[in-house]
Amino acid sequence: MNTNTEAIRAENLTKIFKTRRSEVVALENVNLSVKDGEFLCLLGPSGCGKSTLLRILAGLEKQTYGKVYLKAKNTEKPLTAVVFQGDSIFPWMKVIDNVEYGLRIRGVPARERREIALKYLKLMGLEKFADLYPPQLSGGMKQRINVARAFASDPEILLMDEPFGALDEQNRLILQQELLRIWEGSGKTTVFITHSIDEALLLGDRIVVMTAQPGRIKAILDVGMERPRDILSIKSSPKFVKLYREIWEYLREEVLKARNFTGSGGK
């Protein structure tokens, strides 16, 4: 692969969590390459180390062995921004201040960052709620703020850890649509974790299927559907059905295997 168009490369990535009694291998020999501007979905059974991989990419966790390269085109921009799985919106900041957070940390002047934050709030349809505090908002709105916060900080690489996992079906559909719209306008390199085959197919350019504990890469599939995408027409296309079956075959084995483990790694 041409390294010039590569945004992320992981080589022989291994992560071992040591507890007093035992060692848990969360990731084993993961080799991964993400192209510049690509939307990569990581799919796998619960506890397969998806979140661990993402946390290593985000610099929140250190790998035990192996190497990670993230390419920075512009040193002014932050390298990564994370959309976390749970409710990670600061309850003590107004909605607008939450969206501004990444920019504030980077020292962007107040007026400029307000402008940027407002732009993303508008994109997410949240401008009316700018001056509210998050405890007044629903789960779906909070995840929208979460996405807006990551986009507003304008990172080289977006990392999303099952951002819509806790939402109900309808909210998830709407947010997937909104994410597609914003993302397709931004062209940012994105790694997106999900346990939903649907979601991976709707959003991703490529899908990486991971094995159950320890997490290894089982298969990599090209989705190859044109953009801009329309969720409903994708869902009814024959290609979608074919890929869905293929992925499910891979996943079924792993889910059954995972049942034989008593513990589960991630959340």
Partner: peptide, 8 residues
């Protein structure tokens, strides 16, 4: 984690 991930 949020603060760390944004480099606070």
């Amino acid at each position: 984690d949020v603060a760390r991930s944004f480099g606070a």
